[in-house]
């Protein structure tokens, strides 16, 4: 009977290796590698999800088009970098091109987000929350198909990564560097730095600026904020613009990462983890999103290591993320840092 169960199990191939792998996993170099890997993933997840959580926290709109915006950002940022960077360009110039890409993408997509909010979402705020989800879902269909048209018009394969954009990465980021006990890839360190920078900037915006105060007041009680003289409508538009801009910036970074890359399916690939991170953290709390990003990133990296070394089940990391989502929602229905009233009916 046991053998039948084992044969049916998707983990069957890995079982003899399991104990060896357990030993290997707890070696310091492995643990350190997994930690860096996890932090890099966490940084990406937080970058992808922070725009989503800002928008939800203030307006209660679960933006399904968020992943598509990231995808558009990846292509747009990739375009800027491909245009500016040639074979001989040195590392500092490549980083400058990246910065320019970030600025261009943020401006363009924030403008797009602002227009979408004013034109499409503003008329339906008083409808049930479902209509806003549906509207943004429709926007996803349009944006994805539009990207597919444009990309294939220029002779690129929409479903595979854009290699030219990947190649604009500075050489230092493509190499591995020895750090403490293990060698880690430069890109991962760069991603961690970007993630920390994003968190600090958003945190400073929310707590140290007047506009951030408006945003927090609006999230708490938008009617009261309006009564106290805050132009809540404008705050809504600005936050939606910021959120979509942030999604685009995350896309620019993803255009450099071999395991993501600019492609049309990137929209779905980023949307689902972003949802998971935002929900686990608790809808609308930025602190929760950062914590959940760390949690999901580290779990993802651990599971990826186990898949590569012991368990021959390809879907392991992806499946674990959603399992974490289900478990967290069962144990704490409002998410790690969420407030119970948010996100229900």
């Amino acid at each position: 009977m046991t053998s039948v169960v084992l044969a049916l199990s998707p983990f069957a191939d890995g079982i003899p290796l399991f104990l060896d792998a357990l030993g290997a996993f707890f070696r310091p170099s492995t643990l350190f590698g997994v930690l860096v890997d996890g932090l890099a993933k966490a940084a990406l997840y937080v970058m992808i999800a922070s725009g989503l959580t800002l928008i939800f926290g203030l307006m209660g709109v679960l933006n399904f088009a968020h992943g598509s915006v990231t995808m558009v950002g990846a292509y747009l940022g990739g375009l800027v970098m491909v245009l500016l960077v040639s074979q001989e360009t040195g590392d500092p110039t490549r980083l400058l091109a990246f910065l320019l890409g970030v600025v261009v993408v943020f401006t363009a997509l924030a403008a797009l987000g602002g227009l979408l909010e004013m034109g499409l979402i503003r008329p339906i705020y008083d409808r049930p929350p479902l209509s806003q989800i549906l509207l943004t879902f429709g926007l996803t269909l349009i944006l994805d198909e539009f990207a597919r048209i444009v990309v294939s018009f220029y002779g690129l394969q929409p479903i595979s990564e854009w290699q030219a954009a990947l190649a604009t990465k500075p050489a230092a980021l493509g190499q591995r560097h020895d750090l403490v006990v293990a060698s880690v890839s430069g890109l991962k360190l760069f991603e961690i730095a970007c993630g920390i920078l994003t968190v600090v900037v958003i945190w400073a915006f929310l707590t140290r600026t007047r506009y951030g105060l408006y945003v927090r007041a609006g999230s708490e009680d938008s009617e009261m904020a309006a009564a106290l003289g805050v132009n809540v409508r404008r705050v809504f538009t600005v936050v939606f613009a910021l959120g979509t801009g942030l999604a685009g910036v995350a896309g620019v970074l993803l255009a450099w990462d071999q395991s993501w890359g600019a492609s049309v399916p990137l929209a779905v690939e980023t949307l689902l983890p972003a949802f998971v991170v935002v929900i686990i953290g608790g809808l609308g709390t930025f602190r929760g999103t950062v914590a959940a990003g760390l949690l999901v990133g580290l779990i993802d990296a651990t599971m990826t290591w186990w898949f590569q070394n012991a368990i021959a089940f390809t879907g392991l990391p992806e499946m674990t993320i959603f399992l974490v989502l289900v478990v967290v929602l069962v144990v704490r229905p409002q998410g790690l840092f969420g407030v119970e009233e948010v996100g229900g009916h």
Partner: peptide, 13 residues
């Protein structure tokens, strides 16, 4: 046990 967006997300999960 959940409602609204959380229900949609857990079934998605």
């Amino acid at each position: 046990r959940l409602s609204g967006v959380y229900f949609a997300m857990i079934t998605l999960g």
